[in-house]
């Protein structure tokens, strides 16, 4: 168990195994997103109430899902880093933060675009959009805090603590924003909580969500790999790698 955890923590091992996993996730992401988009945008029936504008859901919902999941993943990585001192976990957390902020922004932007045909305005203080906006600020806080330290170790640990504090607060924030929203005359309907969506509408949505997750995993793997090279630049194995000698990761080691 311990040996396994520490092997997982070795940047060199992670570098090797992620090279093997990465193409699969890229392929799955491409396949799912292309299928989902074609199906969702061209073949799924138009909404009886919103017409074609509802199709923004195929970007908005996966982005919103991902925005929340990435924060949780980031906090879990932070916890792993703090408890077991596994540096790869922190490198992953570091690359996840901007990705999560970008996804939150996509969710906000698509929500605003959706607002134009739905509410006739770019911004409504809708419960979901408000929670997303707060989430964006939480991401920006984590990114800014990490950037503010000169010592990398302190930066990593501070960002981990903040991510964990944030993840405990996210449900509380979400709950209180929902409460606040229902108190102040809710709009006639919210963006996505629709009853009984027909199968041909939600199936492409599920595919898109899966595709976004695969894309996230692939991108995180790729960016963590470059983060490993950057941080371990003075380590022997990286210098060998750069010098052109291929570092082989034997199959036994990978297990």
């Amino acid at each position: 168990m311990w040996a396994f955890i520490h092997k997982l923590g070795s940047p060199k091992w992670f570098y090797g195994i992620s090279a093997k996993l990465q193409p699969w996730f890229w392929a799955a992401a491409a396949l799912l997103i292309v299928t989902g988009s074609l199906w969702g945008l061209a073949f799924a029936p138009a909404d009886y109430q919103q017409g074609n504008s509802f199709r923004i859901i195929y970007v908005h919902v996966p982005a919103a899902f991902l925005a929340q999941s990435i924060f949780i993943a980031m906090a879990v990585s932070g916890l792993v880093f703090m408890v077991w001192k596994i540096k790869v976990a922190d490198m992953a957390a570091a690359v996840m933060a901007p990705l999560g902020a970008a996804m939150t922004f996509v969710a906000l932007f698509s929500g605003a675009v959706w607002g134009v045909p739905t509410w006739g305005t770019w911004w409504m203080w809708d419960a979901r959009l408000t929670s997303m906006l707060i989430l964006l600020f939480l991401y920006l806080g984590v990114i800014a805090l990490r950037g503010a330290f000169t010592s990398r170790d302190s930066a990593s640990r501070a960002a981990s603590v903040l991510a964990m504090v944030g993840v405990i607060n996210i449900p509380i924030i979400k709950y209180s924003v929902d409460w606040w929203y229902t108190l102040h005359q809710p709009a006639s309907f919210t963006l996505t909580s629709r009853p009984a969506m027909p199968t041909e509408m939600w199936l492409p949505l599920v595919i898109m969500v899966l595709g976004f997750y695969c894309f996230f995993i692939a991108l995180t793997l790729m960016r963590t790999r470059s983060e490993i090279l950057r941080r371990e630049a003075n380590k022997h194995w990286v210098q060998e790698l750069v010098a052109g000698q291929v570092v082989k990761v034997p199959a036994e080691e990978a297990r």
Binding site: F137, L138, G141, A144, L145, A148, F149, I173, S176
Partner: peptide, 26 residues
């Protein structure tokens, strides 16, 4: 978290204001 940073003040508001929202709402 920000006590060791030279200019922690502004960062401090960015970090804690989002966390203040539930208290503000209730």
């Amino acid at each position: 978290l920000t006590v060791g940073l030279a200019r922690g003040g502004v960062l401090l508001s960015l970090l804690v204001l989002p966390l203040y929202i539930p208290v503000l709402i209730f």
